[in-house]
């Protein structure tokens, strides 16, 4: 079985995996990073979104072996200890989550959006979330949270 090495949340990690191992399996099962979730098997729901080399990617649709040498950030890598990332704080402040299952993917997607578009409009936010399903919130407060998170991320710079 091949060995794969990558940087996850700033730490160098490596593991022996079957080639068919998905990144999300490597994260959850090998590294024990269970914040990244699996909500579907057709690459639609976005619960598994992580950041790979600066872009949001569905970790259920990429093999771990494809991530050799990559820099991966998961939801566990966003906060600085007990200090939440501004987008995490915004989701909490604006009740952008209920059951919490889609939340890691939502937040990772949102952070990527704001990185690429620091002042997104409501329509741009809604369009960007095309690949992230939520069944609880009706997206209303997710959109509000991302608007606020974008402002907070801008202020932090």
């Amino acid at each position: 079985m091949p060995t794969v090495s990558m940087t996850v949340n700033g730490k160098k990690v490596s593991g022996t995996v079957e080639p068919r191992t998905l990144l999300v399996q490597f994260l959850r099962e090998t590294l024990g990073l269970t914040g990244t979730h699996v909500g579907c098997d057709t690459s639609q729901c976005g619960a598994c979104v992580v950041d790979i080399d600066g872009d949001s990617v569905k970790s259920c649709t990429i093999l771990a072996v494809q991530c050799e040498g990559a820099n991966v950030t998961t939801i566990e890598g966003l906060a600085n200890g007990s200090e939440l990332h501004p987008m995490q704080e915004a989701f909490r402040e604006h009740h952008g989550l209920q059951c919490g299952f889609c939340t890691p993917g939502m937040i990772m997607s949102a952070v990527d959006l704001v990185k690429k578009n620091p002042n997104p409009t409501e329509q741009e936010i809604r369009h960007w979330l095309e690949g992230n399903l939520c069944r609880c919130t009706g997206y209303h407060n997710i959109v509000k949270a991302i608007e606020a998170g974008a402002k907070a991320m801008g202020a932090r710079k």
Partner: peptide, 9 residues
Amino acid sequence: IGDPAVRHR
């Protein structure tokens, strides 16, 4: 095409 995460791959 697809969604942002799909367009990234």
